[in-house]
Computed example of a mutant assay.
Amino acid sequence: MPDDVPDLDVALIDLERFGREMRAIKDTADDFSRALSTGLKLAVAGGRDLDAIFRRLALSLSSRILTRSLNGLEGVLTRSLTGLFGAPRGLPRAV
């Protein structure tokens, strides 16, 4: 196979990973918009403090971002160490 022809298996894996990431972003955006709508309803109807609602939203969003970032970093470290040292006996190699 010529060098300038892309490997379709790699391209499909990249597209699948991209699709998963896009779904995760959509889910996070949906959760945030749902929390914002609920918070605004509580502020208007329930007399809650809008500042406290925005603080709670910011904390929730930053927590989600940190968790997803750490999950990605964990995957990279796992694949790197597995590639460097090999998978422990009885465990499959990281993909």
Rank of each mutant, 00 (worst) to 15 (best):
D30C: 12
G39T: 13
K41D: 15
G86E: 07
L12W: 02
R64D: 10
M1D: 13
R64A: 02
D3S: 09
G86F: 00
L66M: 04
D49I: 07
L42E: 13
R48V: 14
R20A: 15
I65T: 10
M22A: 15
S63L: 03
S63E: 08
G46A: 00
R55P: 01
S63N: 13
D3K: 15
E16T: 10
V44P: 05
D14G: 10
T78V: 04
L12E: 11
G90P: 08
R20V: 07
L12P: 00
G75H: 12
T82R: 01
R56N: 13
F85K: 07
R79G: 00
R55G: 04
A87T: 09
A24K: 08
S63C: 05
T67H: 09
A29M: 10
S37N: 11
P6T: 01
R34M: 03
L15W: 05
F32S: 04
L77G: 01
T28L: 14
G72D: 14
S37L: 13
L57R: 02
R68T: 12
T67A: 12
L84E: 10
G46T: 11
D30A: 13
T38N: 05
S33E: 12
R55C: 09
V44A: 14
L59Y: 07
T82K: 00
G39E: 04
L81A: 11
L61W: 11
V76P: 01
P92N: 11
V10W: 07
A52G: 01
S80Y: 09
T67N: 06
M22V: 15
R68V: 04
R89I: 03
S62Q: 14
T67D: 10
A43Y: 03
T82V: 06
D4R: 06
G19Y: 11
D7M: 01
K26C: 03
A11P: 02
S69P: 01
T38G: 10
F54T: 14
T82M: 05
A45T: 12
L50I: 12
G75Y: 01
G86N: 10
L12A: 03
R68I: 12
R93S: 15
L50W: 01
L84H: 06
L84R: 12
S37I: 11
G39P: 11
L91F: 02
L40K: 04
I25A: 15
P88W: 05
P88Q: 02
S63R: 14
A11F: 06
A45Y: 07
L50R: 05
D7L: 10
G72H: 12
F32H: 07
V5Q: 10
G83K: 08
K26R: 10
G90E: 01
L12K: 07
R93F: 07
S62H: 13
D27K: 12
R23S: 04
D27H: 08
D7K: 02
V5W: 00
I65W: 07
G75C: 06
P2I: 14
V5A: 13
S60L: 10
K26Y: 03
I65F: 04
R93I: 11
K26E: 13
